[in-house]
Computed example of a mutant assay.
Amino acid sequence: MSGAPWTGDDRGHNDEVHERWLRALNRPTGAPGHRDEWYDEQCGGCRFWVALSGDLGRDWGACTRAGAAFEGQVRFEHDGCASFTGRADGSFG
């Protein structure tokens, strides 16, 4: 053991985490009742979504919007909620 901090770059672990966290989506894109307008209101395009570092940060970030239902929680970039606020520059992820 090197004593260096763990970076989280363990493919097997990250794949397990990804699959486990996907089960907690608020708006799964393939679910019945998913509305077309929600495609433009995904977490990855919200100004309050901050990507994680490391490999998980490619798809996952934290919600930082005060008062939002998912504030302080890790959210999938393609999920969404009623508190979505688009980024001024229109970027995603």
Rank of each mutant, 00 (worst) to 15 (best):
S2T: 13
G3Y: 07
P5I: 09
P5F: 13
W6R: 05
T7R: 09
T7N: 14
T7C: 12
G8D: 06
D9W: 01
D9E: 09
D9M: 02
D9Q: 03
R11T: 15
R11W: 12
R11Q: 14
G12V: 12
H13Y: 15
H13D: 12
N14I: 08
N14M: 12
N14P: 01
N14Q: 11
D15A: 12
D15R: 10
D15M: 11
V17K: 02
H18Q: 02
H18L: 02
H18D: 13
H18T: 04
E19W: 04
R20N: 06
R20M: 09
W21A: 07
L22W: 04
A24E: 13
A24V: 03
N26L: 12
N26W: 11
R27N: 10
R27W: 15
R27Y: 10
P28S: 14
G30F: 12
G30D: 11
A31W: 08
A31L: 11
P32C: 07
G33K: 03
G33M: 06
G33T: 07
G33F: 10
H34L: 11
H34T: 03
R35P: 00
R35L: 14
R35A: 14
R35C: 02
D36T: 03
E37S: 02
E37F: 07
W38S: 00
W38Q: 01
W38M: 01
D40Q: 08
D40L: 11
E41N: 02
E41A: 13
Q42F: 04
C43L: 06
C43A: 09
G45N: 02
C46R: 00
C46V: 05
R47K: 11
R47Y: 01
F48L: 00
W49R: 00
W49N: 01
V50E: 09
A51F: 04
S53P: 00
G54F: 06
G54T: 05
G54I: 07
D55W: 06
L56F: 01
L56H: 01
L56T: 00
G57D: 01
D59M: 06
W60E: 00
A62S: 08
C63N: 03
C63Y: 06
T64W: 04
R65E: 15
R65D: 13
A66W: 07
A68M: 08
A68N: 09
A69Y: 06
A69K: 05
F70R: 10
F70A: 14
G72F: 10
Q73E: 10
V74D: 05
V74S: 08
R75G: 03
F76E: 05
F76W: 13
F76G: 05
E77G: 07
H78T: 14
H78Y: 14
H78E: 13
H78M: 15
H78F: 15
D79G: 02
G80T: 04
G80V: 04
A82D: 15
A82G: 07
S83I: 07
S83G: 10
S83Q: 12
F84Q: 06
F84S: 03
F84P: 01
T85S: 13
T85V: 15
G86P: 01
G86E: 13
R87S: 08
A88H: 07
D89S: 06
G90T: 05
G90H: 04
G90W: 10
S91Q: 08
F92Y: 13
F92P: 00
F92R: 11
F92S: 12
F92N: 09
G93P: 05
G93H: 07
